[in-house]
Amino acid sequence: MIQSLTSIFSKITKSKTYLRPPGAVPEDEFISRCIKCSKCAQVCSYNSIKILHLNAGKDFGTPVIEAKDIPCYLCMECPRICPSGALDNALVDKEKVRMGLAVIDESKCLPFLGVICRSCYDECPIHRVAIVLEDELLPRIDAETCTGCGICESVCPAEEIAITIKPLSQLADKRK
């Protein structure tokens, strides 16, 4: 119990878990494979991919996506260009991307507070599938089809962003 407690705290506070570009292999493998060449960031025409600074410690130089600022628009340019296999070169279908999973905090999400809002639903690139509306009002995530691109997080108009992406690395035990 104590062990798991510590590990949960360390996960949500100390070592940050990053949202990696589409096609990223599991985090441990990603870190060992990524040669920090920045090619994925260069090919990203939306500036979605950022390269971590020195203060990121061992993760310095690796690519990340801050979905709340600029999400991944799933143009699928970066996986094929990765020279190291840290991103899966064979991944071409945006529907097959699994970077993470959108999670809704119902205590912040406007429709759960009785306010009509469909921003995430309208902007989701796996339109009407990865996010569905219960009773045409409440957004629900379909874990099977959500790519984790973070477009929903980038447009959420709730006072505090109510839909966020849990990166793949945090979900390792939940889904592959």
Binding site: L110, G114, V115, I116, C117, S119, P157
Partner: peptide, 19 residues
């Protein structure tokens, strides 16, 4: 907040009105 006694919207608002 939405006015629950108003029969038009019964307390419901859209995101514009909420802000």
């Amino acid at each position: 907040k939405g006015d629950t006694k108003n029969t038009i919207n019964k307390g419901l608002l859209c995101v514009k009105g909420f802000y």
